[in-house]
């Protein structure tokens, strides 16, 4: 079975470490916040200028002056800090964020990522994504492995305009956890019940499959 959005988030959360500062992109990455292991201290960075993003507010707590990078109303976690946009991207570009999780339309086995534009169809802009992929060392891309019509999104070369070049090393899809190195995809784990043949079939870029590919574990 392919992973649900929640399960993808749950698997990403297993990569969190105590004391991490983490930037979560819009969509599935946001859900990772729901699976921070109990007792672990993690602060979420929101690039509009908040370190220590809390949960959504109650009706009474709603504050138009307190939003996240997805423009959603939020609260502040204990120990939060507020700063301007240049300071926020100094943290990101300076490599101070421990883990960045973001979505993508396509990745390729050179570590390129396309996530912000579909020419003629979707022209919204890159927001902070280009800064995040250029500045962070530890990035996990979350995405579906293939389109609904079965076309692979893990390519030998991205077709859409790039968000970043040679910067992606790990991809978690609904089917597999994949590492990118030496110009190849390497299969690390597969979703429970998903066959290696399915993953091979839906991966357009060169895929290295080791003899033993463990299934992902969920609590």
């Amino acid at each position: 079975m392919a992973l649900s959005r929640q399960q993808i988030a749950q698997r990403v959360a297993q990569e969190l470490q105590d004391g991490y500062y983490v930037n979560l992109g819009i969509g599935i990455p946001t859900l990772v916040a729901n699976y921070i292991p109990a007792g672990m201290q993690v602060l979420l960075q929101s690039e509009n200028g908040l370190l220590g993003m809390g949960q959504f507010p109650s009706e009474e707590q709603i504050d138009a002056d307190l939003i996240n990078a997805g423009k959603q109303t939020v609260t502040m976690a204990t120990g939060a800090a507020i700063f301007d946009s240049a300071e926020s991207f100094a943290m990101i570009r300076g490599g101070h964020v421990d883990l960045t999780v973001l979505g993508a339309f396509e990745v390729d086995c050179q570590g390129n990522i396309a996530s912000y534009m579909i020419p003629g169809k979707l022209i919204k802009g890159m927001g902070g994504a280009m800064d995040l992929v250029a500045g962070a060392d530890n990035i996990i891309v979350t995405m579906t492995h293939a389109s609904k019509s079965g076309e692979s999104k893990l390519l030998s070369q991205c077709q859409l305009p790039l968000t970043g070049k040679g910067c992606i090393k790990r991809v978690l899809t609904d089917l597999a956890f994949i590492e990118i190195k030496n110009g190849q995809f390497h299969l690390l784990e597969r979703a429970p019940g998903v066959s290696i043949e399915t993953i091979i079939k839906l991966t357009a870029g060169e895929l290295v499959v080791p003899e033993h590919v463990p299934e992902m574990c969920f609590e």
Partner: peptide, 18 residues
């Protein structure tokens, strides 16, 4: 006026955005 673009609120069972 301070308009809000995405008015997200937590319900008691909903932890999203935590």
């Amino acid at each position: 006026e301070k308009h809000i673009e995405q008015r997200t609120v937590r319900s008691q069972s909903d932890k999203q955005g935590a």
